[in-house]
């Protein structure tokens, strides 16, 4: 399998994700330039990561311009052909703007940027991202965003629960999910979701930021390892 990491001009987690995939996990990774109209050299069934950052400055609304970029058109085709995409933070925002994921990410309730280590509870192990992780496991995966409050209408939310599309919820260390463990006001403490086909994934926490014990924590590495394991099946 191959990985692609998209570079928008304002991406700033592209190199971090690339490092974790290539140096920590020894994966086959390629950068994808935002002006490209194709996802080459990736093939059908390969994985694309939309990394964190501020795609085109995001002065208007996070991801609002990125959704119009050539690479996003190529990514839509990639998904239509059965490929996979994971958006992290700004990547999640872009996927929602592009309509590849339900819902939207709006301003945190406190109106401020929040960067901190963050406990999240794994809601389902029945996805490529979490297949190595038991339901209810608590991982420490840092967040860093100002527009990270997940919003989706009730109707859609119900169907997302029914389809097992909720991946992670903000929790405390022991996995309890309450208002006080909700850093940004997301509906139902939701930190990550996927589409109904389980091809498109979005999460606000940054798994690449807790991927090396050398720096302090490697909980997030399990997400990438799960994908590798799942793709190898």
């Amino acid at each position: 399998m191959r990985w692609g990491v998209v570079i928008f001009p304002g991406s700033n987690c592209d190199r971090d994700v690339f490092h974790v995939l290539k140096d920590v996990l020894g994966e086959d990774v390629h950068f994808l330039w935002h002006k490209n109209g194709s996802v080459e050299p990736l093939g059908e069934g390969d994985w694309i990561i939309l990394p964190g950052g501020f795609s085109y400055g995001d002065y208007l609304r996070a991801g609002a311009i990125a959704r119009l970029s050539p690479i996003m058109k190529a990514i839509k085709r990639h998904v239509e052909k059965g490929g996979y995409v994971l958006g992290i933070c700004n990547g999640f925002q872009i996927l929602c703007e592009a309509g590849l994921l339900p819902g939207a990410l709006v301003m945190n309730t406190n109106g401020r940027f929040i960067c901190q280590p963050q406990y999240v509870r794994v809601e389902t192990s029945n996805t490529p991202l979490t297949n190595l992780i038991a339901d209810g496991t608590v991982l420490n995966i840092p967040i860093a965003h100002k527009e990270g409050r997940y919003y989706v209408d009730n109707e859609t939310l119900k169907s997302m629960y029914a389809n097992d599309q909720i991946l992670f919820k903000y929790s405390d260390e022991s996995g309890v999910v309450t208002d006080t463990t909700n850093p940004n006001g997301s509906v139902d403490n939701i930190a990550g979701v996927c589409d109904a086909n389980k091809q498109v994934f979005g999460m606000m926490p940054h798994p690449e930021r807790s991927a090396e014990q050398l720096i302090g924590n490697d909980d997030g590495l399990q997400i990438f390892k799960s994908i590798v394991q799942w793709a190898g099946k």
Partner: peptide
């Protein structure tokens, strides 16, 4: 104050954890 700054990008700040 610190939490309003991205202090973890470039994934090398050990103080983010300890």
């Amino acid at each position: 104050i610190i939490r309003q700054y991205d202090h973890m990008v470039q994934i090398g700040n050990k103080n983010a954890w300890e």
